[in-house]
Computed example of a mutant assay.
Amino acid sequence: MASTNPTLGALLRGLRTREGWTLKEMSAKSGIPVSTLSKIEHDRLTLTYDKLLQLSQRLGLRMSELFAESTGTAEQAVTARRSIGDMARAVHVETPNYDYYYLCTELRRKRMIPVLTKIRAKSVAEFGELVHHSGEEYIFVIEGGIEIHTEFYDPVVLKKGESIYIDSNMGHAYLTAPGHDEALVLGVCSSADEGLMESLLTLHGDGEIALPAEARG
């Protein structure tokens, strides 16, 4: 019967996860090359007791802490971050297809990006190529109606009060639904990529970006 005891690689990986370190950060703290740490974590290399003692000392840990297993029940740290979104403090990006109002932009490294969007494009030909970016997104129709075109599904029309959740890596475009000149939607884009905001802004090409008055000084 296979042993259920964790390997050294699993223990080191657990330690990194608990401390929030990258391999590069652990390498800098321990003095062990990144390549060596990677091999240990993938159980392709082990360390002698002397090396383990050296590792624990350089990391400022007791040996018992080094070998402590994660219970998986540790509470996530409370950051107490908060931001109130309003149009006066939004970053406004105007493009031929949309008016975007990025909210709560003073918070950095967000994993959710809230965006109010006025949609004007009426056809795929007018819109251009479908958009792709990392993560997922949720769209809620506040006013008007929208027609959603995606890479793998037939177009769908949403009315006021309806919503959709999609994989943002899939090509997509939001158009005004027939009978509407404009539509207003609230979108929330989410990704593990901490540079999501910057990635979204690059999608706008030559769109005109207007910072909120307080940011312009």
Rank of each mutant, 00 (worst) to 15 (best):
S3H: 03
T4E: 08
T4P: 02
T4R: 14
G14W: 08
T17M: 06
T17E: 10
G20F: 04
W21I: 08
W21G: 06
E25V: 09
E25N: 05
E25K: 14
M26T: 01
M26P: 01
S27K: 00
A28R: 09
S30G: 03
G31W: 00
P33Y: 11
P33G: 06
S35Y: 03
T36E: 10
S38D: 10
K39A: 04
I40R: 03
I40G: 01
E41D: 01
D50E: 14
L52S: 04
G60K: 03
G60Q: 07
R62C: 08
R62A: 13
R62P: 03
M63I: 15
S64L: 10
S64K: 12
S64D: 12
L66P: 00
F67C: 08
F67N: 05
F67V: 12
A68L: 13
S70M: 02
S70V: 11
T71D: 12
T71I: 09
T73G: 07
E75Y: 13
E75L: 09
E75I: 12
V78H: 14
A80S: 10
R81L: 15
R81Q: 11
S83H: 04
D86E: 08
R89H: 13
V91T: 14
E94I: 09
E94A: 12
P96E: 07
P96D: 06
P96M: 09
N97M: 06
D99S: 10
Y100G: 02
Y100M: 07
Y101P: 00
T105Q: 15
T105S: 14
E106T: 13
E106F: 12
R108K: 13
R109N: 13
R109E: 14
R109K: 15
R109L: 12
K110N: 11
K110C: 13
M112S: 15
M112T: 14
V115W: 05
V115I: 15
L116H: 11
R120Q: 10
S123P: 02
V124M: 12
E126R: 03
E129N: 05
L130Y: 03
S134H: 11
E137C: 01
Y138N: 06
F140W: 05
V141T: 04
V141Q: 02
I142A: 09
E143Y: 09
E143K: 15
G144H: 08
G144T: 05
G145T: 04
E147W: 02
E147M: 08
H149S: 02
F152R: 14
D154L: 06
V156L: 09
L158K: 03
K159R: 13
K159E: 15
K160L: 05
I164D: 03
I166P: 00
S168I: 05
S168N: 03
M170E: 15
M170S: 15
H172N: 01
A173L: 00
A177S: 06
H180K: 03
D181T: 15
E182P: 05
A183G: 04
G187L: 12
C189T: 01
S190Q: 08
S190W: 06
S191N: 06
G195S: 10
G195Y: 06
M197T: 10
M197Y: 13
M197K: 11
E198K: 15
E198H: 11
S199T: 12
L200V: 01
L201I: 02
L203I: 04
A210F: 09
A210Y: 11
A215W: 13
A215N: 10
R216S: 09
G217N: 09
